[in-house]
């Protein structure tokens, strides 16, 4: 009898914990979507903010986030893939590769606000790019680099050596083997990792705080050397910095919904690629 009670208690402990973790997600999504989805209208998506940002839409913030993510991609993906190719395809285990791998692991653990400081010192001040979407995109690129390298390397590791041997034995150089066989085969895996990393980058706020994000921009800026609005910062601003916080709460909920939907969209694309690729094997 006593044993039975203990066992029951243990069940509650484990299953209960799992239920609580699931509830966290449920509460987050329910609260934000139940109050935010009704704010999402075509006007909200496509209009500029108006009346001191108490009315209107979030179009500049959406454009800003897309432009920002685009710059991050252009910078971090080639760089990260090249580094992963070096580590997995060219390099033999050595002191140097151990140091590179240790650097990558530690870079992944650095708080994002410190990347913000580094972006400020390097891009804004030293490279004189100013506070701009370019500086912010490059900063987010640095932040994304370790994740892109790690996920790409994992994708490359899954390619069996027999694929590489096939072309090498025909007298292809290592680069030709990488370009013609390894990368095309690893592409779905690389893509999945890249998209998940970018979805994280798109939701980041701390690294862009000092490198170019703006409270409000008059009109719509798509120039890469200008400040920009971004969805996460817009949400932060609407919920803490605005002079009439209660009045703009529906806008804040709407912005949060759009941000989460955007991030989930990225994730769904990534899962789709992973799923489709798995079912092909």
């Amino acid at each position: 009898m006593k044993k039975k009670t203990r066992s029951f208690f243990n069940w509650i402990l484990l299953a209960g914990s799992t239920i609580i973790v699931c509830l966290f997600l449920g509460i987050i999504l329910f609260d934000i979507f139940s109050k935010g989805l009704s704010s999402i209208t075509w006007n909200f998506i496509s209009a500029l903010p108006s009346d001191g940002m108490t009315k209107g839409g979030i179009f500049p913030a959406i454009i800003g986030t897309i432009l920002l993510t685009f710059i991050t991609t252009l910078f971090a993906v080639p760089f990260g893939v090249a580094c992963a190719v070096y580590l997995n395809e060219y390099a033999r285990p050595s002191v140097l590769t151990n140091i590179i791998r240790a650097s990558i692991r530690n870079l992944a653990g650095i708080p994002s606000i410190i990347y913000g400081l580094f972006g400020l010192a390097l891009f804004v001040q030293a490279f004189k790019l100013g506070t701009s979407v370019l500086s912010a995109g490059l900063t987010l690129g640095l932040l994304s680099l370790p994740y892109i390298i790690t996920t790409t390397e994992e994708a490359l590791k899954r390619i069996p050596n027999s694929m590489r041997e096939a072309t090498l034995a025909l007298g292809a150089t290592q680069f030709e083997t990488i370009k013609d066989v390894v990368l095309p085969k690893a592409l779905p895996g690389i893509l999945t990792g890249v998209i998940l990393t970018l979805s994280r980058a798109a939701g980041e706020t701390a690294p862009i705080l000092f490198t170019g994000v703006a409270f409000y921009i008059n009109g719509l800026s798509t120039s890469i050397n200008q400040e920009f609005m971004a969805l996460p910062y817009h949400l932060y601003m609407l919920s803490t910095q605005h002079q009439s916080i209660e009045q703009v709460r529906p806008l804040a909920y709407g912005t949060a919904s759009v941000l989460i939907l955007l991030v989930f969209m990225f994730n769904i694309i990534a899962f789709y690629i992973r799923f489709k690729h798995r079912s092909q094997d």
């Binding site: 027999s162 694929m163 041997e165 096939a166 072309t167 034995a169 013609d180 066989v181 095309p184 085969k185």
Partner: peptide, 10 residues
């Protein structure tokens, strides 16, 4: 070289 397991290019 021809390998143990057929390894056609993708």
């Amino acid at each position: 070289m021809v390998f143990q397991k057929p390894n056609p290019l993708p």
